[in-house]
Design a protein around this nucleic acid. Structure first.
Lengths: 174, 174
DNA sequence: CCATATGGGTCAGCCTTGTTGACATAGTTC
DNA sequence: GAACTATGTCAACAAGGCTGACCCATATGG
């Protein structure tokens, strides 16, 4: 093989490079979800349940509309899975104190355990990939991924400002 | 485990870092597909059609079973979208020469044009992310992504012939 | 206090895209 | 000629999106 290149970016920005990126994202996402999918199937749940469990776990006492904002789906779609999760005892709801209309969501103990198991495979996959690739590569990965994420979701990953509960309801001076 | 590092990787391999990776992949994939989805909707097609058009474009004269292998779906699922694409004149089929049972698939001109338009938005998104992140980051991105892809699909991205473990390649000798 | 806006839920129906299972038809191979 | 293989097709089902319509309870502003 001849590899005439000098410099660290032999294929940078070229057509083939872009196509590889596209395909890598497709295959990585597919494999990334496959293990959890299998686990969910055994509980008669789907990927949507996982996402709800995941984000409720990440944002305890999140309101339904904030969760909808993160997921980017309609309340009818959410309702279908959410009510199953509540009925099956993975998530509990309680009225908001300052706004009694809100139903704040939180994982039950059972839910926490479920979340742990479900996300475990994905964490392991990332841990392996990160370990094999090395710290510097991970930084690069994060930069590229960030560049592909739009608008609101992007803020989740920006330094500093980061972590107010995901809501425009923070008009609060409270 | 505690943070031993100082320098550019403060969170490396820690729980939070892994969760960020998981979330980034989720949001990036979602945004990555959204533009093409909108375009497909205007043509009354779905994401599945895009994938078929994409991979047939990448592998002209591919057989149906090879395509099934790449996509990882059942022939019934493929059949549904494939026959639409054939009927609508985006893909043509012809008998294999050495094996008359095969129906080799190829994009028509119309199909090529469609593929170009559909993938354009995704290429642009990658090009932007790559450009903003820089060549070195792109290398890191590729390493990490590769580490998350399983088995057969992985080989698509390995340098021809050699199987080396992922995790090097910066300035590998030659 | 009342009108209206908002948070949340629900019913009903539709679409895409995946799944099984059964079966059909050519063409290849032994 | 039998058996296997590549492909297609019918039928039924499930998940998880969507829209539209309508409801209830609570907040909020005049």
């Amino acid at each position: 093989m001849k590899e005439v290149k000098s410099g660290p970016n032999p294929l940078f920005l070229r057509e083939e490079e872009l196509r590889q990126g596209i395909e890598m994202l497709y295959f990585a996402y597919r494999d990334f979800t496959s293990e959890a999918d299998a686990m969910l199937a055994r509980h008669k749940f789907g990927r949507a349940h996982h996402r709800v469990i995941y984000f409720v776990g990440r944002h305890p006492r999140i309101s339904v509309s904030d969760l909808l904002g993160i997921l980017g789906i309609t309340k009818q779609s959410l309702s279908r899975v959410l009510s199953q999760l509540v009925n099956d005892g993975f998530i509990m709801q309680h009225r908001g104190l300052r706004d009694g209309r809100q139903r704040l969501l939180e994982l039950t103990e059972k839910g926490v355990e479920m979340e742990r198991q479900l996300t475990e495979a994905q964490r392991r996959r990332f841990a392996r990939a990160y370990r094999e690739a090395g710290a510097e590569a991970v930084e690069g990965f994060r930069k590229v991924m960030l560049g592909m994420i739009d608008g609101a979701a992007r803020e989740r990953f920006l330094p500093a400002g980061g972590h107010r509960p995901p809501g425009r309801s923070s008009g609060d001076g409270r």
